[in-house]
Design a protein around this nucleic acid. Structure first.
Lengths: 257, 257
DNA sequence: CGGTTGGTTGACTGTGTTCAACGCATGTGG
DNA sequence: CCACATGCGTTGAACACAGTCAACCAACCG
């Protein structure tokens, strides 16, 4: 089931190799989906990564999206603030994820994005070329489109969580989603994997209070469904969790490839 | 403020003219954004509209999206069912809205879509051409991209409603969103506009129980914020509603055009 | 007519919130 | 090295918003 075990961890290798691997999978599962030109483009993009500290904004709601990028290491999230201070987190950006690309022809950010850990990013300039000259990079454009479609699908899952699931189901569902995404970048499902989220962050993502997230996590631990260490979790029984959460694997990812 | 008053109602005119008008606005606000070729394409698309009864599925989650279309009259919604029968509605399709277009290169529906009223649709075959030969219809492709970006933005609003707003705020926010979308197609904000939603449908959209939707609507009526008739509503005080709901107008729509 | 669909109301329950306090680790400056 | 502050997790008690269950009504329709 866990397909990522065969890969070394995303963060353990040279960034451009891993990014290439990931974009290839996104672009079409065939490893030859990207041209040599695109491959060198990726290398160039990763040449000078930048560091961003935790808690910094990658971009802000309403501002023009002028700096598309790739997350090479660390976590971030997309969110919106209400006028009275309430906060809603839409989704999380993990290593290998693209961000800051406009969806339509209107290049304005519909959310803000904030780093949750120290983060290493690449691509501020190079990826911009790609967006403006799509014909030269068909594989990359395809990978970008797939990534955006996935993000969209993730949003739909999130709506279901918030609209129709209980606290336990929400937490289980989110952990499974993150677990599977981490599995794809080299942290096998069922082992201890990084989860650099405070309970407050989880609360703001799941539409719950911090206190209730805390109690719900404790319940999952008591039921021997998960284990936690400092900033990592282990999903002890992903199948039982999936049953609780009504979790369905996203399509397009054959089990044994 | 209400910009739609200058237009006749979407459903009162010849479908292709109104669709052309709407797509022009989406494509770039300038009325000349669509070519003659595209205009005739639109006419051709609307030539043989089909009727679909209420409660029918336009497409089903997981199936390949082979029939893109346009809603010419009536309402529909996109939704997903949980395995135990719970239901979550993601958004609503109003006259003039496009549906069934794949987002990425993977042409599988991520939701189901169901009609809420009798519905008139067009484009099953013609729009498919457009998607396959985007170079011949640049304006239409642009309009489609803008429409999808808007739908995406609507989903973000929906996440905020479900995650961080109270029942009253949710109802007010949804009514405002629909009110503004109806305004765009010729039903001025502040007047009686059609709202063919049962309270159960609103409940499944807003993540509430039917009973609670009922009580919340009554409260809004008692506070003289809305009035309802058989299947229509009037937003008596949109400004007060917007304050309650922390509602922000989507950008890209100048106030007086 | 009786059946159905959608809306309304009341009483009761419960899931999740709020408020407040405390523990614990980490960091920092005197 | 200690005093203090800060961030995060944990716990308890009281409360409230919203859900559930059940009954009833009105309109519509075959």
């Amino acid at each position: 089931m866990a397909s990522g075990a065969a890969y070394s961890r995303f963060v353990d290798r040279k960034p451009h190799e891993l990014l290439w691997r990931r974009l290839s999978r996104l672009a079409g599962l065939a490893e030859g989906a990207l041209s040599d030109q695109e491959r060198s483009m990726i290398r160039q993009t990763c040449a000078a990564p930048g560091e961003v500290p935790a808690g910094a904004a990658l971009y802000v709601e309403g501002e023009p999206l002028k700096k598309p990028g790739v997350l090479l290491a660390g976590w971030a999230c997309r969110l919106r603030l209400l006028s009275d201070g309430r906060r809603q987190i839409f989704d999380f950006l993990l290593p290998g994820d693209l961000f800051g690309h406009p969806l339509g022809p209107e290049p304005f950010a519909t959310t803000s994005a904030v780093t949750l850990t120290t983060v290493s990013i690449a691509g501020t300039g190079c990826l911009w070329e790609m967006v403006r000259e799509p014909d030269r990079f068909p594989g990359l454009v395809r990978a970008l489109a797939v990534a955006q479609a996935r993000q969209q699908a993730g949003l739909l899952d999130h709506v279901v969580r918030l609209g129709r699931q209980t606290a336990q189901e929400r937490v289980a569902h989110l952990l499974l989603e993150l677990g599977h995404r981490l599995d794809e970048i080299g942290f096998p499902l069922g082992t201890y994997v990084p989860l650099p989220l405070t309970q407050e962050v989880m609360a703001d993502a799941l539409g719950l209070s911090v206190v209730h997230v805390n109690r719900t996590l404790q319940q999952l631990k008591r039921d021997r469904l998960i284990e936690t260490r400092a900033t990592s979790v282990r999903l002890i029984d992903p199948v039982a969790l999936a049953t609780i959460a009504d979790f369905r694997l996203p399509p397009g990812r054959p089990a044994g490839s």
